[in-house]
Simulated assay, not measured.
Amino acid sequence: MPAPDLEFLFRVEVETGEEVPVGDTPYGAVRFTHAVGGTVEGPRLRGELLPLGGDRVVGRADGTFEINVLQPIRTHDGHTILMTYKGLIRGLDESADGPPDASKVYWRTAPMFETAAEPYAWLNGLVAVGVGGFISPGKVGYEIYAVS
């Protein structure tokens, strides 16, 4: 079987808002972070993040963070796409001063898409991967790739 190829789809920049700690649950240390906005820029998809999404982050005992994100996108031509993804972040030292060393952080996601918009229906049947990281305080980014 041939190895899959990756095609760059778009870059997402997410402006994060308030972080709400849920506490130490049976699943780990849980918190929720609201996404207050952001941008989507790529060759086949452009738009903005609607301020309706956010992510649930679970800090596991092994130092890994599980993320579960729900984020609606409004395209430049007025359509709505729901992007959801789960992923893992490893190598993040939250006690360190300053931004983390990106070369030491493993931040990967598996985005899925839902839309009723015909121009973007190709997203409904797509397997994708995302590579994430910190951009600045209050802002994270992802580069999203289609897997062929």
Rank of each mutant, 00 (worst) to 15 (best):
D24I: 14
D24V: 15
K104L: 14
E48M: 01
T84N: 13
F8Q: 09
L82K: 06
P72C: 00
A102D: 07
R60Q: 12
R44L: 07
T33A: 13
L92G: 04
E94D: 09
E48D: 04
G28D: 04
F113A: 01
G47P: 00
D77A: 06
R46T: 07
E41D: 15
T33N: 09
T80D: 03
A35F: 14
P111H: 03
T25L: 15
T64N: 02
V131D: 06
R74Y: 00
A96F: 07
I81T: 01
G78I: 06
G132M: 04
E19K: 14
Y85K: 04
R56V: 08
S136W: 01
L92C: 05
E7K: 15
Y27D: 06
S95P: 00
G130M: 11
N124Q: 05
M1K: 14
P2Y: 07
A96I: 04
D93Q: 12
F113Y: 08
P119R: 11
M83Q: 10
A121W: 07
R31N: 06
A3M: 12
I67W: 02
G54Y: 02
R108P: 00
Y85C: 08
H79N: 09
W122L: 10
T75R: 07
G130C: 12
H76L: 12
M112V: 10
E7W: 05
F134L: 06
T84A: 14
Y85T: 01
L126Y: 08
E114A: 14
A96W: 11
T25G: 08
E66Y: 11
R46L: 00
L52H: 07
Y142F: 15
V14S: 11
W122C: 09
M83R: 11
L52P: 04
A102R: 14
L49E: 02
T84H: 10
V140H: 04
E18C: 11
G130R: 10
F8D: 08
Y142G: 04
E15Q: 15
G37R: 08
R74I: 03
I67M: 14
V131Y: 13
L88I: 07
A110I: 05
D5K: 12
V127R: 15
T75P: 05
T75C: 02
P43S: 14
E48I: 08
E15Y: 04
M1R: 13
R60H: 15
A35K: 10
L52F: 09
E114Y: 10
G53T: 02
L126T: 12
G63L: 01
I144D: 01
P100Y: 09
P4V: 10
R56C: 01
G98C: 09
K86N: 10
N68I: 04
A96C: 09
L70H: 03
Y120I: 09
R11E: 12
T25D: 11
Q71P: 00
F10S: 03
E114T: 14
E143S: 12
R108N: 02
A116N: 08
G125Y: 06
